[in-house]
Simulated assay, not measured.
Amino acid sequence: MKLAIFTNDSALFHLIQSCLAAEGAVCTRYGEDVELARALHREEFSAIVFDAASGMDASHPVLARRACYGDRRAPLIAVGDFCAREHVQAALNAGADDIVLMPVDPRELRLRFQLAVRRFACDSGSCGTAQTTGDELEMGSYRMSRRDGSVEIDGKPVRLTAREFAIAWVLFSQQGNYVTRRAIAATVWGSSEDIVGRTLEQHIYKLRKKLQLDGACGIVLRTMYAHGYRIEQIVERAVEPALARAAERVPETTLARATERALERTAEVAAPRPPLRPASGAANGACTTGGTIKLHTSGSEAARHAQPWSPESSDSWAFVANRAGVRRLA
């Protein structure tokens, strides 16, 4: 039997290898998540031993791939220092089938390995039963079944390819969390983001259209640079009852009076103003004679050489008058 061991700790790998050699297990070590995800795509393993120090998270490419392709899963045994009950529960929720506490006891490891392999074989059909736990997802009007790769929206089936379904399952199972392009590439293709590249974008584009992930059915697919993709459920916001009641209490007469006053102010500003006439007295040395303005005293040198001008025939005086009228109204 073939056994995949995911760890960066060489000492732990040799310990597990020596413990399971008597069981006839051929152990292969994987240090990169993409490398193991690619191996899971190509090969069948009797079991996977997962070093929890690498991070037991449901978005991990290895764990996410096992969640997508439940019919191809091998039992996963998590090895780690689970010092609290909630840590054990978190590991099981992330996809572990069994756990082994650190420091590793060789007898416990062999027993856990035998039980996990036997239980998986029984669940896969040797005992005449099918594994159904965690094979369905429901969110709003969406229903997904991993057993047959089917998707329904409001009870209507939507046809997806195997990879489109795998991407949808990864995104919907991680509702509210961003799933990186690297994780999707490793989970679905068993490859790196650089190799998948444009192909992933095309699948996301088709998935948006087929599943109407624009909010039309209550679900939207968000994209954020350097973070990845996230499924969100749209919550419709109702109008605040207090604001609605306040709007209903505003009398129509009040609105009418406000509109009337606004129109009156507009008419005041737009009404034509009478022409501005200069004062009868002299100001700043200016005086008027027969409608002609003299800006200098009659005895000055400037007055003897200045040309007289009339305010009625001068555009400059109209400009000054209009500006003065605007300042007076303001």
Rank of each mutant, 00 (worst) to 15 (best):
F6T: 08
A11P: 06
E23A: 12
E23V: 13
D33N: 12
A39G: 11
L40D: 08
L40R: 07
R42V: 13
V49H: 03
D51C: 07
A53N: 11
D57T: 01
A58Q: 10
R66Q: 12
D71M: 03
E86F: 12
A90P: 01
A91K: 00
V104F: 02
P106K: 00
L109C: 13
R112L: 08
C122L: 10
D123Y: 04
S124A: 15
G125N: 02
G125R: 00
G128W: 02
T132H: 07
E138I: 11
M139Q: 08
M144N: 04
G149I: 05
G149M: 00
D154H: 01
V158E: 03
R163H: 12
F172D: 06
S173I: 09
G176S: 04
A183E: 03
W189E: 12
S192T: 15
E193L: 13
G197Y: 00
L200W: 01
E201K: 03
Q212R: 05
D214S: 04
G218W: 01
V220A: 06
I234R: 11
P241T: 06
E252G: 14
T254K: 04
L263M: 14
T266F: 12
A267Y: 02
V269D: 11
P274K: 03
G281C: 03
A282F: 00
A283S: 13
G290K: 02
G291S: 11
T292N: 01
I293V: 15
H296I: 02
E301F: 04
A302L: 07
R304D: 14
H305Y: 01
A306V: 10
S314K: 01
F319C: 11
A321Y: 00
R328G: 15
